Computed example of a mutant assay.
Amino acid sequence: MENRLFFTTGDGCRIAFRLDGPADKPVLMLSNSIATALEMWDMQIASLANHFRVLRYDMRGHGQSAAPAGAYSLDRLGRDVVELLDALDIRRVDFCGLSLGGMVGQWLGIHAADRIDRLILCNTSPYLETAEQFDAMIRGLADTDDMSDMADMFIGNWFPPAMRETPNAVVDGFRNMVLATSPQGLAGNFAAVRDMDLRRTVALVDRPTLVIAGQYDTVTLASHSEEIAATIPGAELVVLPAVHITNVELPDAFMASVMAFLRPAT
Rank of each mutant, 00 (worst) to 15 (best):
E129Q: 15
V205F: 08
Y216M: 06
A191E: 02
D143H: 15
H111T: 10
I90A: 08
G10L: 11
M147E: 01
L48S: 04
N123C: 14
P264M: 01
F17E: 01
G102Y: 10
M147A: 01
N168K: 09
D252H: 15
Y216I: 07
A67D: 02
I15E: 04
M40I: 02
R200Y: 15
G63E: 00
K25M: 11
D145P: 12
G156W: 12
M163Q: 06
I45S: 00
T209N: 10
L237K: 04
I232Q: 03
I15H: 03
G12H: 10
M40V: 07
L121T: 05
G234K: 09
F17G: 04
V82M: 11
A230K: 11
K25E: 09
T218W: 13
F190R: 03
D152R: 14
S125G: 04
D20L: 06
G185P: 03
A71V: 10
I110E: 05
F134C: 11
D75L: 10
D117K: 11
L250S: 08
N3G: 07
D195I: 11
A16R: 04
L85Q: 01
Y57T: 04
I228M: 13
I155G: 04
V93I: 13
G105L: 02
Q133P: 08
C96W: 06
D206F: 11
E236R: 15
A192M: 04
F261P: 01
D252K: 11
R139D: 12
V93E: 01
D217H: 03
A180M: 12
I120P: 03
D146H: 12
D75E: 14
L141Y: 00
S257F: 05
M196L: 15
M29G: 03
R199C: 10
A260P: 07
S73K: 11
G97E: 09
I228S: 02
F261D: 00
G101H: 03
S182F: 07
M259L: 13
L48M: 12
T9H: 13
L204N: 15
V205A: 07
L38P: 08
A242V: 05
A151T: 14
W41C: 02
C96R: 04
F261N: 01
S99Q: 08
R18S: 08
V81E: 00
F95A: 05
G78E: 00
N32Y: 05
E226G: 11
D114T: 13
G102N: 09
D206T: 14
A192K: 02
G156E: 09
H224Q: 09
L98W: 07
V54F: 00
N168H: 10
M40K: 07
M196G: 10
I15G: 06
F154L: 14
N247E: 08
H62K: 05
A49I: 00
D135M: 08
A242T: 05
D145A: 12
A46G: 10
V248N: 08
A69W: 06
M196K: 14
H111V: 08
V202R: 04
T130V: 13
A112R: 06
